[in-house]
Design a binder for these strands. Structure first.
Length: 882
RNA sequence: GCGGGCGUGGUGGAACUGGUAGACACACAGGACUUAAAAUCCUGAGGCCUUUGGCCGUGCGGGUUCAAAUCCCGCCGCCCGCACCA
């Protein structure tokens, strides 16, 4: 690829990427083109892409994400908006600590070095970012304000402390993240991981469960799938709390009842066992003098804490010997099991198992030989013969085997059970109460890690938990960390945690937990509106800009990050930092970037640059370059280190340029879907850059000629004008709707039409043709500018335009050129296309009918008989039913 | 396991609210230019057949409709998330 040095035979030089891209980047920077003026009076538009973790190298997924945001931002600049388009760094987190442990570097140094490298790469992309607003979440100037927010939330009653479980590595003496637990073992030590309870800090997101749920309905700028995922995550259910009396003969530890939450009280006569979580108080009591139970609970404790792990386990349980009495039959007792699939965090940590109505319960019952009594059956089933085999029946239906409920719809049975249990009493309280439950749990933010935002709290033996006074903020991280030791470096730092109590002056200790990095990213979008302010936000400014008009990021953040940000916005509202509840008006989740995988004959993964791919007899064949041996072309997968199928954007930017890279990642695939990176694809984008340059220059050459007499027939000039205006309108609409791939297809079509037109016009340029071409080129340069901003500037300059195309307005679309006088209607016979007719727009039915029926193909099939039916959809289609 | 999504030519995809399936691009083939190559330009193409015509065709199997990639029912496959990765 050395194409920049050779003239191609015509007068047009190749477009020199390596010269022009840095040139325009410098021009934009020197002009401060993308720095937003505080007093810009135009309509506001806030475009934001999820800020990256500074790993040190840009990933192709970032390129796609930021290319999308930049196209949107540039389009809105062209629509004459004041566009806020900032960038920063999600800079706290595990990788810095891991790097520090591995290579003995300072996590702070490592992080800021990475930021410098990535900023440089982002700048090479030619983005319209306002770098004057940049910050990293590990800047004390940022996290100081986060600590202030924590204190304000604490004062507002939005923070709590409680016990929760963590993955504990007994060898490394450290808390492990879920991703550090592999097959139940610590990734570094290989030791069996244990669950351990720690007292931790929580944000009370559950206080907002109902609000976070109901407000989802207002988020009409979000993808439906994200809204559905959020709804399901919050998981509202209407059920009952039922108190089951423990049979005194089997009671242990003086516990007299078992509280159970259920969404299916109607199935109460199908109950055949009770299951409690391994860490349920009753389980603890039962295990006290019971080795089997203790062993089982121990086993459960070594399963890790992630829900995915727990729920994919084989369902197991152990009977406690405890029995409960059935509320409607004092002689019926039901055994209580400790089960590995019941979670203490959900409901009451105890369930009643109804095997006929729940697959998980059925599997459990079959395994332990418990009764399976069908209590709900489909409407049309027969009560005498209805049985449960391998599958439970969980759908609505009619009650059976349920005494006084028999024959009712199960929804009626729900109400009847609620009524009866509400009137009964156990230990002086109602035996049953209706209860709305949420799956959503409070947000545990404590992390036992050094590279995070310190929780601004001091523990004093006299005063207990004491907030750090606002005047003492920030609580800064120490200058030096010793990450070589296991455990939390803040905790074993020689001096950092030792302070005096701000309340009584006695010796006290700092909280050594830091905050979850999701906290950092839950309000950065607000900080960008006033990044230098001495308070977390300047409310007037933040309220003027927020909510973010268009937020773009990976679908992997569809639940947690977005939900936490929504909570934070509400919490900041409550504490006076913001005056709104929903942070993101428009949300978009982009797909991943994938690539083929390659393996050599030994099964070793090969990187794309270690492989040469050729086409032999129409088949793609890969060769390992180092050995010359054939390599296997494997499946297309998400780029990953392990499979070696990643592409380094830096290489792409250097060889093909930012414009080609931006163009490629947005073409072909719809943005919400995965895009496959291919060498052919980026090369074609590169060729297209050159093609536009040539086209603009050829047009330019034509304009400089003096036109011949105006041709009386200007039909093809008019056709081009219609195409141009239609394209400008369509590209604008597609960008506004984030359908970049379609916008690009429109641009291809226009350039194809223009190339043809240029070739024809060369013969005999007349005034009408030259005017149409001139207009086409003018439009083209502006509508490509969001995608290929450097090339567009070069073209703009070549055309002798004033100023910069990044400041130019979108072309005015002449609506009168968009309407066609005639429409082409396909004509079907029995739903199969047999021909087409051309009729005037809004032609009368009789004309359409006559023309359609007179088509040869139609007449032949009808064979002289009249059609049975004629369906005419005006201006769309004709269907003849023979 | 639970929740969400996706599935269309050799490939990525397009197809508006049920209305011409395959736009646009890649790869491929043929041609022009060239001493040659690259680059560029032009042309062709879903599959099958008895080829101015016909049949089949949007993961699979049914259904609704004048008309289904699109709606409904039942399957299959792949991908993402699951609360300490970010």
């Amino acid at each position: 690829m050395s194409g920049n040095d050779q003239p191609n035979g015509s007068a047009t030089e190749r477009y020199n990427i390596r010269e022009m891209e840095p040139h325009w980047q410098k021009v934009w920077a020197d002009n401060k083109s993308f720095e937003l003026a505080e007093d810009d009076p135009r309509d506001k538009m806030y475009v934001l892409e999820m800020f990256p973790y500074p790993s040190g190298r840009l990933h192709v997924g970032h390129v796609r994400n930021y290319a999308m945001g930049d196209v949107v931002a540039r389009y809105h600049r062209a629509m004459n908006k004041a566009v806020l388009h900032p960038m920063g760094w999600d800079a706290f987190g595990l990788p810095a600590e891991n790097a520090a442990k591995k290579s003995n570097v300072d996590p702070r140094q490592w992080t800021y070095d990475n930021i410098a490298a990535m900023r440089n790469q982002l700048q090479q992309m030619g983005l319209t970012l306002d770098w004057s607003r940049e910050f990293a979440t590990c800047d004390p100037e940022y996290y100081a304000h986060q600590q202030k927010l924590f204190l304000d939330f604490l004062e507002a009653g939005l923070v709590t402390r409680k016990k929760s479980r963590v993955n504990w590595d007994p060898v490394d003496q450290t808390v492990l993240a879920n991703e550090q637990v592999i097959d139940g073992k610590g990734w570094r030590s290989g030791a069996e991981v244990e669950q351990r309870e720690l007292v931790q800090w929580f944000f009370k997101i559950t206080d907002y469960a109902e609000d976070l749920l109901s407000a989802i309905d207002t988020l009409d700028g979000w993808p439906d799938k994200v809204r559905i995922m959020q709804r399901n995550w919050i998981g509202k259910s209407e059920g009952m709390l039922i108190r089951w009396e423990i049979d005194p003969a089997t009671a242990i530890g003086g516990i007299e009842e078992l509280e159970v939450y259920t969404t299916r009280p109607d199935t109460i006569f199908g109950a055949s066992f009770m299951a409690i979580a391994p860490d349920h108080p009753l389980a603890t009591a039962a295990a006290k003098d019971n080795k089997d139970l203790t062993a089982f609970i121990e086993k459960c404790r070594r399963m890790g804490t992630s829900a995915a792990t727990l729920e994919t386990l084989e369902k197991e349980g152990v009977a406690t010997g405890i029995h409960v009495k059935h509320p409607f039959d004092p002689d019926w007792t039901i055994p209580v099991y400790i089960a590995n699939f019941v979670l203490m965090d959900y409901g009451t940590g105890a369930i009643f198992g109804c095997p006929s109505g729940d697959q998980r319960d059925l599997d459990f019952a079959r395994k332990y030989d418990l009764p399976v009594v069908p209590v709900v059956m489909p409407k049309d089933a027969d009560a005498a013969s209805f049985e449960i085999g391998a599958e439970s029946y969980a759908d609505p239906g009619i009650m059976l085997n349920s005494k006084f409920l028999d024959g009712m719809a199960n929804s009626e049975a729900f109400d009847e059970v609620a009524r009866r249990l509400g009137n009964a009493e156990v230990n002086g309280r109602p035996q049953g109460e209706r209860r709305t439950n949420y799956r959503l749990r409070d947000w545990g933010i404590s992390r036992q890690r050094a590279w995070g935002c310190p929780v601004p709290i001091i523990h004093c033996d006299n005063c207990g938990v004491v907030p750090v006074p606002a005047a003492d903020l920030p609580v800064e991280l120490p200058d030096e960390f010793d990450l070589s030791k296991s455990g939390n470096a803040l905790d074993h730092h020689p001096t950092w945690k030792y302070v005096t109590c701000p309340s009584c002056g006695a010796d006290a200790r700092r909280e050594t937990d830091t905050m979850d990095t999701f906290v950092d990213s839950s309000w950065y979008f607000a900080r960008f509106t006033a990044p230098k302010a001495s308070t977390p936000t300047v409310p007037e400014i933040a309220n003027a800009w927020l909510p973010v008009d268009q937020y773009i990021g990976g679908v992997e953040h569809a639940i947690l990050h977005l939900l936490y940000s929504r909570f934070f916005t509400r919490a900041m509202h409550k504490t006076g930092h913001l005056d709104l509840d929903e942070p993101f008006k428009g949300m978009f989740t982009q797909g991943m970037v994938t690539h083929e995988t390659y393996q050599n004959d030994k099964g070793v993964w090969l990187a794309p640059d270690q492989v040469q791919v050729d086409t032999v007899d129409g088949d793609r064949v890969a060769t390992e370059i180092a050995t010359g041996k054939p390599a296997r072309i494997g499946s297309i997968e998400k780029m990953s280190k392990s499979k070696m199928n990643g592409i380094d954007p830096e290489d792409i930017l250097n060889t093909h340029g930012a414009d080609a890279a931006r163009w490629f990642v947005l073409s072909d695939s719809p943005p919400e879907r995965d895009v496959q990176w291919t060498e052919a694809g980026i090369e074609s984008a590169h060729r297209f850059v050159q093609r536009i340059w040539k086209l603009v220059n050829e047009g330019q050459t034509l304009f400089s000629q003096s036109p011949s007499e105006v041709d009386t027939d200007t039909a093809d000039a008019d056709a081009l004008r219609a195409k141009v205006h239609r394209t400008s309108a369509a590209v604008g609409e597609e960008i506004a709707g984030l359908r970049f791939n379609r916008a690009i297809a429109h641009i291809y079509e226009l350039t194809n039409a223009m190339a043809k037109f240029v070739a024809e016009t060369h013969e005999d340029p007349d005034a009408a043709h030259l005017a149409a071409l001139r207009e086409a080129v003018d439009h083209l340069v502006v509508i490509i500018s969001p995608f290929m901003p450097h090339l567009a500037e070069s073209c703009w300059q070549a055309l002798g335009k004033q100023g910069l195309v990044c400041d130019a307005l979108w072309p005015e679309v002449d609506e009168s050129l968009l309407v066609d006088d005639n429409v082409t209607l396909p004509v079907q016979v029995n739903g199969k296309r047999r021909g087409e007719i051309v009729v005037p727009l809004d032609a009368p039915q009789s004309m359409v009918e006559t023309k359609a029926l007179s088509l040869d193909a139609v007449a032949r099939i009808l064979g002289g008989k009249p059609p049975r039916k004629l369906v005419i959809v005006p201006n769309r289609i004709v269907n003849v039913v023979a």
